[in-house]
Write a protein that binds this DNA or RNA. Structure first.
Lengths: 221, 221
DNA sequence: ACATATAGTGACGTCGTGTCATTTTTTCAA
DNA sequence: TTGAAAAAATGACACGACGTCACTATATGT
């Protein structure tokens, strides 16, 4: 009987890898996918649990088995965005290579990711003003960035790449610009031209931090 | 009888100037004042018609005689903010005097007004993500600013004060920075130090637009 | 002072939310 | 394969906030 048992287990494993994990995980993913689908074309304010679960094909109240509320769901989406964003912003923070070049690289990646995920970014940003808890998550996400940028500015000031000034308020200003410019430019269809946005964001960062550097008006990497 | 009539009229006029206009206008003002009071210390998301009218001391449903909904009320608050903001930003747009000096003056006024009205600014900004109509009003407010800044940059480029680049995307970036930095810094108590915010905002605008200008790290006007 | 216009009231219907007891489906091991 | 236990899905419910409406009370102006 160990034969049939093993076969059975093997089948289970096979079916699991085909269907992806347990039922609950598939359902959770279906809900997240449904949310992404809806938020791609409609603002967060129009999203209701009823509509979302209708798309998912499961009873509305089942939603609450997977998320506390829509804001908890948005938090999940934000966390996955965060990963992409920190990854793509890495070059400048790595503090290897030419500061201006790596800054351009980081900003370019940031624009790309935010362009691709624009409507989601906007939905999270919108939702964060309505819910206490999500607001804290969003806010601490921005603050992490503030901290990282501040530290990097201070380090490069010590090395003489950046002139002396109070780093944090400038870091905060630059980050708020990025965040809300991206939300504004890429948060709704039709999204704005990412090349133009990248160009102007780069101009601001470079002229603020590395004043003497020349600025190209076309990106010719 | 014309005597008593005149006296009566005189009394009416006196009482009107003392009590300010008709009942409806006083009530409307009371509602707006109540909203200002509540929003001074709590986020927009916690504001309900019931709570607002409780503060005002009138029946909840009377609210709808004066405003379509809370977003219409917020629109009224935004419009009064707008006036202050356009007024105070005038110097740079007037295109008289030294561009950098007038820019500093405008930014200084902007920071002052937004500091004073921080929680209201934030409430409007928060509310605008929830309501269609208010979002359009907020958005067109920002766009007006985008237009004005774009025009001013282009004019000063023509005069040689500002180097050549695509003006609008830079204007949009600078404005989004202002708007959301102010919302972030001044929108909740305790508000951040306006001096520091002014200094960093000024740094960004000046170094972006008038690269060659020296930047003072203390404001010694 | 009175007739009329206007402001204020309370009750109602609606919608979206979140919970709960119950039913259905999965899961896993004998 | 089967059946018992665990987990997931369902439908009904109560709640809170909204916006409307017929009605009452109060202002307004002649």
């Amino acid at each position: 009987m160990s034969y049939s048992k093993l076969t059975h287990i093997a089948e289970k494993a096979a079916s699991k890898s085909a269907q992806q994990l347990r039922k609950s995980d598939r359902t959770r993913k279906a809900i997240l996918d449904g949310a992404l689908e809806l938020l791609w074309s409609r603002p967060f304010r129009d999203l209701t649990v009823a509509e979302l679960m209708e798309v998912t094909g499961i009873c509305r109240s089942a939603f609450y088995r997977y998320f506390d509320d829509l804001y908890a769901l948005m938090e999940t989406l934000l966390l996955s965005l965060e990963e992409d964003i920190f990854d793509v912003a890495a070059p400048w923070f790595s503090r290897e290579g030419n500061p201006v070049d790596t800054l351009r690289e980081s900003l370019s990646g940031l624009v790309r990711v935010c362009y691709e995920q624009g409507p989601i970014l906007r939905a999270v940003s919108d939702a964060s003003t309505i819910d206490d808890r999500l607001e804290n998550v969003w806010s601490s996400f921005l603050t992490q960035f503030d901290d990282a940028v501040t530290a990097n500015i201070e380090a490069q000031q010590a090395e003489g790449f950046i002139q002396e000034f109070s780093a944090r308020p400038v870091a905060v200003a630059l980050n708020r610009m990025d965040a809300y410019l991206f939300v504004h430019a890429f948060g709704r269809h039709p999204r704005q031209n990412p090349e133009l946005v990248l160009e102007s964001v780069t101009r601001l960062w470079v002229s603020t931090l590395y004043q003497s550097s020349p600025i190209t008006t076309k990106n010719n990497d």
